[in-house]
């Protein structure tokens, strides 16, 4: 399988503090990948490393087959929409497009113009006067019209209201359908990702807790509720467990069907699934996660 991103023991240190450490993961091509995790998990650092904005302190990182070393050719392949979607407040929308056209050999002027027109943005409007949602759309337009093979978005909708959030993600989805490229999108809100992503990575404390296609994750994870019990069959991997005096609730992952009639089996939503992994931050599922990735 083609990978857009491969990280091996990747680490980034600021002074003495490690923002990311021992991070190993592989992101397959052709997906809209959601990267979730609590604040401080290293999401932003990982994405900035992938975009070539940061240089790793240790480990190896390959993005689209190349090193994200800030070279022009590598920069051209990877689009990056930074957190809070920055834009030059003194430049107009039109001038932002001109900036993109001047600085990117693969610039798709038609795409950029069409998007701005469709969004109803006034090209002469200064970016400083745009609403948060409009500015995010402008930043997304810049990222899309660059025609990257991989578009990385770091918490692009975190500061947007629900409507702007939906419009932003919708715009992104339409672009993915129209032009074939991979997307990595980080968020700490699973609900954002649920509608958008077909692949999910849960990152906690620099470690990948679980990674896989959303459909597959949902079909292999179950919540079991039943009389209190401490052990489960070995093919059932326990993600989280809570017990009362008489009752046990497990979130498990398994590829096999569950036959035990004493369990009440319920489906998990994506949010339940992520929360189950987040609730057990101490555990590192380095080995088993690879099974799901296949």
């Amino acid at each position: 399988m083609n990978s857009v991103l491969v990280a091996q023991d990747l680490g980034k240190r600021y002074g003495r503090r490690w923002a990311l450490r021992d991070c190993s993961l592989e992101i397959p091509a052709g997906h809209v990948v959601g990267l979730v995790g609590p604040n401080g998990a290293g999401k932003t650092t990982l994405l900035k490393l992938a975009a070539g904005q940061l240089v790793p302190s240790e480990g190896r990182l390959t993005v689209l087959g190349g090193q994200p070393d800030g070279s022009a050719s590598q920069l051209a392949k990877v689009g990056f929409v930074a957190q809070d979607t920055p834009a030059y407040s003194g430049l107009s929308v039109e001038e932002h497009l001109r900036l993109g056209a001047r600085l990117n050999p693969g610039w798709d002027a038609e795409l950029a113009r069409d998007r701005i027109a469709k969004l109803g943005l006034d090209p002469r409007q200064r970016a400083g006067k745009l609403s948060g949602g409009q500015r995010a759309q402008l930043a997304l337009t810049l990222g899309l019209a660059k025609r990257p093979e991989l578009l990385i978005l770091d918490e692009p909708v975190a500061s947007l209201d629900p409507l702007a959030r939906r419009e932003f993600l919708q715009g992104l989805m339409e672009a993915v359908v129209d032009h074939d490229f991979s997307v990595v999108l980080s968020s700490h809100l699973v609900s954002d990702l649920e509608r958008t992503c077909d692949y999910l990575i849960v990152l906690i404390g620099s470690r990948v807790q679980v990674a896989g296609e959303v459909d597959k994750l949902l079909s292999t994870h179950h919540r079991l509720t039943g009389p209190r019990r401490d052990h489960l069959p070995s093919d059932q991997h326990v993600v989280s467990a809570t017990h009362t005096d008489r009752q046990s609730t497990f979130v498990i992952r398994t590829d096999s069907p569950i036959h035990d009639p004493s369990w009440a089996v319920t489906q998990l939503t994506l949010e339940d699934l992520v929360l189950a992994y987040m609730a057990t931050p101490g555990r590192v599922h380095a080995g088993p996660t690879l099974e799901v990735q296949r």
């Binding site: 904005q53 920055p86 900036l99 993109g100 930043a139 660059k146």
Partner: peptide, 17 residues
Amino acid sequence: ENGTHLLVWNQSVTRSR
């Protein structure tokens, strides 16, 4: 301070240039 370096440093132009 405005974060715009993340915008401009991700265009297809190296930082040195």
